[in-house]
Structure formats: C-alpha cells, structure tokens
Amino acid sequence: MSYSILGPLAAGGVALPLCSFRVPAGFPSPAADHIEQQISLDEVLNIRAPHVYLASISGDSMQGAGIFDGDLAVVDRSIEAVHGHIVIALLNNEPLCKRLCLRGKDVILLSENPKYPPRYVMDGDELAIWGVITSSVRSHV
C-alpha cells in the first residue's frame, strides 16, 4: 500500500495555528514565513455545504464497495445520479443504500454483497434518488 501524507488535520474546520510555540525574544521563528493554510476534513468531505448530509450506515449489503456497518456516509443531494453511483434511493418511500445501475431500459439497484440479490425497479414501483454517496468514513478503533 502506498500513501502520501497530507499534513496536519484540523477537526471541525477550525483553524489551528501550525506554529503556536513560544519564540524567544529577538529570535524570529524560521517557520513563521512558511505557514500555509490548514487542512480541514470538513473541506475535504465538503460537509459544510448546504446540500451535503451525513447518514449512518447499518447493515452489510454494501461491504463490497467498502461501506460497512456503522460507517458514516457523506451524502450529496446536488449531484445528478448516474449509472454506477452509490445512492440513497427511495424505493416506494423506503430509503436504501444501493449502487445505481442503468442498463438499457432497466433500472437496477445493486447490493455489493452476494448475499443480497439485485432489485429490479418494476412498473408500479416508485423510485426517487435522495442523494449520492460521495465518501464514507470508518473508525478503525
């Protein structure tokens, strides 16, 4: 696995100074000129936008997509859902987290776990997309 270090994270979008240590009089901090903006998870996940909501996932039907029981899902209502998006679908007014699959005329809600069969949307079913899941957050402790 490869990774790159993003830098320090500030929770809650609150700016934390990168250099808050005391500086001896007469000796300016060499880092003072190099303070850049802080990184904020709020910004990375865009959860302060008016069209973005958090939801809590319960169940294992999406674990193949890396969304597990207890994860936080970041849901964007402003995105137009297209084939392949993981969405919160309202099927006959019941909220479901599924992968949206558009195949020809068929609309299919797929789970990412072989235990759960695909759900074809039939005539007479009512389907609305509540929002598109853009990220999910999992705690590892």
Binding site: Y53, L54, A55, S56, I57, S58, G59, D60, S61, M62, I67, D69, L72, A73, I88, P95, L96, C97, S111, Y116
Partner: peptide, 11 residues
C-alpha cells in the same frame, strides 16, 4: 447530532 444521524439500512 452525530449520535442521531439518519440511519440507512444496508440490507
């Protein structure tokens, strides 16, 4: 409230 978020069933 983080402990009162909308719960979505993945079942």
């Amino acid at each position: 409230k983080l402990d009162q978020l909308w719960r979505i069933n993945c079942t």
